[in-house]
């Protein structure tokens, strides 16, 4: 019988985590959750537009004085930037136990109006960027160090289409993320690396979905009506799920996705 106290299973003490897309939006919520759960070092990266990396670094440093916090400017869709970032982490920290693949973009438009450029903009970050960062982190740090846990942020759009608000690149990329999750879970189980995904529906405060979820959005109430629990995700729902999958509390969960949708996709 496992003798660890159950609440200690959720602690991330002495762990080092890397969060992509961590400079803005929901990435900042994930940063906070991991720090609250006790990570010793939190590394986050973002494209860093408008000084967002520096701002988040400063905000977290004030809130969490006991942890080491490192913000890095990196566009995950650019292979050389990813390689350079992971090399620097290897040289300076030499450890990543937890990787949260959260970086994502979207482009809302009816599919017939989507261009090669808008399609690629989304696929290159959400799917190819996730592959690049995961490959580098595993190859450089997790495999040599004997394991790790990887959490990919997918979406319930991986399972279902929508009448309005089509974002074809996003939908395709997020379904692709689940395929990659299952493949890596099996392929890397021999390296003691767990790979799982989280598939949320709308989250309050998500800047990417503000046209749907803002208080003054014309579709907000209609959308809420379709959800069995009659509310959107709160940011806390997301950070709790991330901390569960990042921790030893989920040590035998591998290749899975956790659906955070108030029952929407069950209906």
């Amino acid at each position: 019988m496992n003798s660890t106290h159950v609440l200690d299973l959720f602690k991330l003490t002495d762990k080092v985590a890397l969060v992509s897309g961590g400079a803005k939006g929901l990435g900042t919520v994930i940063n906070e959750g991991l720090l609250e759960a006790g990570v010793n070092t939190l590394i986050f990266c973002g494209r860093g537009r408008h000084g967002s990396v520096e701002d988040e670094q400063e905000r977290l440093s004030e809130l969490f004085t006991n942890a080491k916090i490192i913000g890095v400017q990196c566009d995950v869709s650019d292979e050389s930037q990813v390689q350079s970032m992971v090399q620097k982490i290897k040289n300076n920290v030499n450890q990543i136990d937890i990787l949260i693949n959260n970086a994502g973009v979207t482009w809302n438009a009816p599919t017939i109006d989507q261009t090669f450029a808008t399609w690629h903009r989304v696929i290159d970050t959400n799917l190819t960027g996730l592959f690049l960062l995961t490959r580098e982190v595993s190859n450089q740090l997790m495999i040599p160090k004997g394991g790790g846990t990887i959490i990919n942020i997918s979406s319930i759009l991986a399972f279902q289409g929508v009448e309005v608000g089509s974002q074809i690149g996003y939908t395709a990329s997020k379904a692709g993320v689940l395929g990659l999750t299952r493949q890596l879970a099996i392929e890397w189980s021999k390296w003691n690396i767990r790979v799982n995904a989280i598939a949320p529906s709308f989250i309050e405060g998500d800047t990417m979905a503000k046209v749907f979820t803002n208080e003054d959005s014309p579709v907000r109430e209609t959308l809420i009506e379709t959800i069995p629990t009659k509310r959107f995700n709160t940011p806390t729902d997301l950070k709790a799920a991330v901390c569960f999958l990042a921790s030893d509390a989920s040590s035998n969960i591998n290749g899975q996705y956790l659906v955070l949708d108030g029952g929407l996709s069950v209906k």
């Binding site: 019988m1 496992n2 003798s3 660890t4 159950v6 609440l7 299973l9 959720f10 069995p228 629990t229 509310r231 995700n233 709160t234 806390t236 729902d237 709790a240 799920a241 901390c243 569960f244 921790s247 030893d248 509390a249 989920s250 040590s251 035998n252 969960i253 956790l258 659906v259 955070l260 949708d261 108030g262 029952g263 996709s265 069950v266």
Partner: peptide
């Protein structure tokens, strides 16, 4: 290991999973 079900059951029982159903 039986202990590996403790984390998932506590997660689903608690407020940590308050938006997860079905």
């Amino acid at each position: 290991k039986p202990g590996e079900l403790k984390g998932p059951v506590v997660f689903l029982a608690s407020q940590a999973s308050s938006y997860i159903t079905g």
